[in-house]
């Protein structure tokens, strides 16, 4: 196998998780690369949905915006944003959605609103965007974000979008329709979630990554799967597609 970067490993691992999926709600950046790689490999019938109103996108280049015309060109359908969120997402028609954030906690809750106190933020971040309703309504959430101690925190500064909330079936109590986060793909490892407690569990390490590296980058006492695996390496074809066709400028390498 050709040597790959941690970012490439992350994108490939996220793409593979989409095997068999037909509808995915995509964001710009890392999710965009993962979903487009999946469409070229493990999920050829994957329909890409973007919150600007686009269904069935076939982007020819990397979009700079979720409303980028490259997402519209050749797409199956375009509708208003309110209809996309209402008729597709809240209507229950989105299987998987990708999310990320500045902070995530052990239950997969996400912060994209502020660092510091909300009243007097140290950093004002964009806010929910579409993430809050996506986290509530998509059938499954896959999170993709780089593993860093300042991002994987014991206490979020702000709970923008719900993961498993306080854990232990709290989503069901609120009757949130989606099943919440199922997977967190990082540049070092893959986490899944314990079905009973809703807590993040280390599922596999990317090749060459030590367990201690992951433990150091997580701000709580990390649960580890009984049979900790190694993430399957990218194939030469995965890397060729990423480097030559999907991201020739190497923005996400």
């Amino acid at each position: 196998m050709t040597h790959c970067t941690p970012s490439e490993m992350m994108i490939v691992a996220a793409a593979r998780a989409l095997a068999g999926v037909r509808t995915v709600f995509v964001g710009v950046g890392l999710p965009n690369s993962a979903c487009n790689l999946a469409r070229r490999t493990v999920a050829p019938h994957l329909e890409l949905i973007y919150e600007s109103g686009v269904y069935g996108a076939q982007p020819a280049r990397l979009p700079l915006s979720i409303g980028d015309p490259t997402l519209i060109s050749g797409a199956t359908s375009v509708c208003s944003m309110a209809d996309l969120f209402g008729l597709y997402l809240q209507g229950g028609r989105v299987e998987v959605a990708f999310l990320g954030g500045a902070q995530i906690d052990r239950f997969g809750n996400l912060n994209t609103t502020v660092i510091g106190d909300w009243q007097q933020p140290k950093v004002r971040l964009p806010g929910s965007g579409g993430a809050c309703e996506i986290a509530i309504n998509a059938q499954q959430i896959f999170v993709i974000m780089r593993l860093k101690r300042r991002a994987f925190v014991d206490q979020l500064h702000f709970l923008t979008s719900p993961g498993h909330l306080g854990g232990g079936g709290e989503r069901a109590v609120l009757r949130l329709p989606g099943s919440g986060p199922q997977l967190v793909v990082t540049d070092k490892c893959v986490f899944r979630f314990d079905e009973a407690t809703g807590e993040m569990v280390l599922h596999s390490l990317h090749p060459g990554v030590e367990l201690a590296e992951v433990q150091e980058a997580v701000g709580w006492e990390l649960k580890i799967a009984p049979h900790l695996g190694e993430t399957e390496s990218p194939t030469d074809e995965d890397l060729r597609l990423l480097r030559e066709e999907l991201d020739p400028q190497g923005l996400y390498r």
Binding site: W118, G127, S128, E133, T160, S161, R171, L174
Partner: peptide, 13 residues
């Protein structure tokens, strides 16, 4: 009415 915001600080604020 919507199935949105529930359970979050986005709702609280």
């Amino acid at each position: 009415p919507a199935r949105a915001l529930l359970g979050t600080e986005t709702f609280k604020y």
